[in-house]
């Protein structure tokens, strides 16, 4: 293997991450397949559109927070993550958890009709109109569609999620070398699996090229939250989940 990592070790890393991913997904692949064509009716979409802006924001903040709790659990089960110093564990999760949520979201996205699972059924972008941030919503939908186009397997989604989370690009890491070693192994494992699964030799490069978009989406989310908070400070302070505020405020 590359850099003195044996194939046995890469395989162990891959198996651990895939298992961690499958154990911490909100929905199994089977559940998502069963739901895939259950879409919100016209009346249900109208109902979302008719909600006050702050109510829908709160609802989305709760959903995101819920998804993040699963991502924290995913991180904890990755071999080596809990061996990082606590500063770096917190830093990686704080800066990467929403990116992982967005990667995981492609599992619950139907690219054939551009709908996403929200509140039990699938619905399109128009469902989120009342949020008042069409740019962010359409960018998130575009991202999900572009990731779906790569037709990743569950194993690849797992390894890519881990690679996004365990990243040396985050500022203020205390032990960047330790994070780098772990990240390199994850990438080797991802590369190995993708070479096996895809005819397209550039599949990994295409996947990696989505990372800047991920980070741009998170920046946009922070900006939209700040703009929302200026208009609805009470909603954020009183009604938003404490974990959401801790991570994004």
């Amino acid at each position: 293997g590359p850099n003195n990592v044996s194939m046995g070790e890469l395989d162990r890393i891959a198996q651990n991450i895939i298992k961690s991913h499958l154990e911490t997904c909100q929905y199994t692949t089977e559940e998502l397949q069963q739901l895939a064509w259950q879409t919100h009716s016209y009346e249900e979409v109208k109902m979302f559109q008719g909600k006050p802006r702050d109510v829908l924001w709160q609802q989305c903040a709760i959903q995101i927070t819920h998804a993040i709790q699963y991502v924290v659990e995913f991180a904890k089960r990755i071999s080596g993550f809990m061996e990082l110093c606590q500063n770096d564990q917190i830093l990686l999760l704080k800066s990467g958890c929403l990116e992982v949520v967005l990667v995981r979201m492609c599992r619950a996205f139907n690219p054939l009709n551009n709908t996403v699972l929200f509140e039990g059924k699938y619905g399109g972008m128009q469902m989120f109109k009342a949020l008042g941030c069409d740019d962010l919503v359409s960018a998130v939908f575009d991202f999900a569609k572009s990731l779906c186009a790569l037709q990743l397997t569950e194993e690849e989604i797992a390894l890519f999620s881990a690679a996004v989370l365990i990243s040396t690009d985050r500022p203020w890491l205390m032990e960047p070398r330790k994070v780098q070693k772990l990240q390199e192994k994850i990438y080797f494992a991802l590369q190995h699996i993708m070479q096996k699964n895809h005819m397209d030799e550039d599949a990994l490069a295409k996947l990696i090229s989505r990372i800047p978009t991920l980070s741009a989406l998170c920046t946009l989310h922070t900006e939209e939250l700040q703009a929302f908070q200026q208009l609805h400070p009470e909603t954020v302070n009183v009604l938003f989940p404490p974990l959401y505020k801790e991570l994004f405020n």
Binding site: V72, E73, R77, Q86, Q89, I90, K94, P242, L243, E246
Partner: peptide, 14 residues
């Protein structure tokens, strides 16, 4: 500073 995240990391994996 990151009280809840800290707490989630401390909780034993269920």
């Amino acid at each position: 500073k990151h009280k809840i995240l800290h707490q989630l990391l401390q909780n034993s994996t269920s």
